[in-house]
């Protein structure tokens, strides 16, 4: 589904990603871990098409298409979803209106008829249950004045509505207490399917207690320096990142 080959990216002429290789198949959950500043969020941003990042080398293929040639909205239409680390507050646009516009734009680009108001509301009620999100919240301006937990739940709710093929969760656990973390993680688990892949970008192992990954990769200084099964996450939790850094230094 997603093939990343020797991907290099920089921001303001500073190299952040220095050659990433990663292969993801439908149904798989990949965790990307690493110390602060290792390039985890940059990788998520580059995949979603954030323009501040300049791709300086390599390729990314998604479902047979050259992802790097596509605009952010084209990527969304192709089935990529980024759950933001810091969801943006947009005063004056309700979550409902925002999502209705987004969903119908995606449908339009796929040649599907737009959902009318009744169809949309029905779908919304159904999906709202996944993360237990309140109707009243959805009628408010997007993320405006939402708590940290509400913002992250809203991200997963959007994921449920847009039904992406590949979801990238960028530090979705940051700023969440344990109850909020559980609701969000359970929401993600309900959305796991044999067709859908998930990339979980996280600094800590605790999210992975709930969203159990098939593979764990450690990103350090812009490269994937170690890959393994979920056990690797436990090892990192126990020993921290220093042994990884030492291993890299020894090379």
């Amino acid at each position: 589904m997603l093939t990343i080959t020797d991907l290099k990216a920089s921001v303001d002429d500073k190299a952040i990603l220095k050659g990433i290789n990663l292969e993801i198949k439908p149904g798989e959950v990949h965790a990307i871990m690493g110390p602060n500043g290792s390039g985890k969020s940059t990788l998520a941003s580059v995949l979603a098409g954030r323009e501040e990042y300049e791709v300086t080398g390599g390729s990314v293929e998604f479902d047979g298409q050259d992802l790097l040639e596509m605009s952010p909205e084209e990527r969304a239409a192709a089935g990529i979803f980024l759950a933001f680390q810091y969801p943006v507050e947009i005063p004056g646009v309700t979550t409902i209106n925002f999502l209705k516009t987004a969903l119908n734009e995606i449908r339009k680009s796929r040649g599907e008829a737009p959902l009318d108001a009744a169809q949309f509301l029905k779908l919304m009620r159904e999906k709202a249950k996944i993360v237990n999100i309140d109707d009243a919240l959805l009628k408010r301006s997007l993320n405006e004045g939402f708590s940290g937990g509400e913002k992250k739940r809203n991200e997963i709710f959007q994921m449920a509505m847009l039904e992406p093929k590949l979801a990238i969760l960028d530090e979705t656990d940051s700023g969440l207490d344990i109850d909020a973390l559980r609701i969000v993680a359970e929401g993600v688990n309900k959305l796991r399917s044999p067709e859908r892949a998930v990339i979980v970008v996280t600094h800590y192992q605790r999210l992975l207690d709930y969203i159990v990954p098939d593979y764990v990769h450690v990103l350090y200084k812009g490269r994937i320096v170690k890959s393994g099964s979920k056990e690797l996450a436990f090892e990192l939790e126990e020993k921290g990142y220093d042994w990884i850094k030492a291993e890299v230094a020894a090379l």
Binding site: A48, G49, R50, E51, S71, P72, E73, R75, A76, A77, F81, L82, F84, P87, V88, I90, F98, L99, T101, A102, L103, E105, I106, S109, Q158, L162
Partner: peptide
Amino acid sequence: NDEAIFYMRSRGIPQ
């Protein structure tokens, strides 16, 4: 707000 524009585009809304 450029970040808000990117947020919307990442959900499929054209620029």
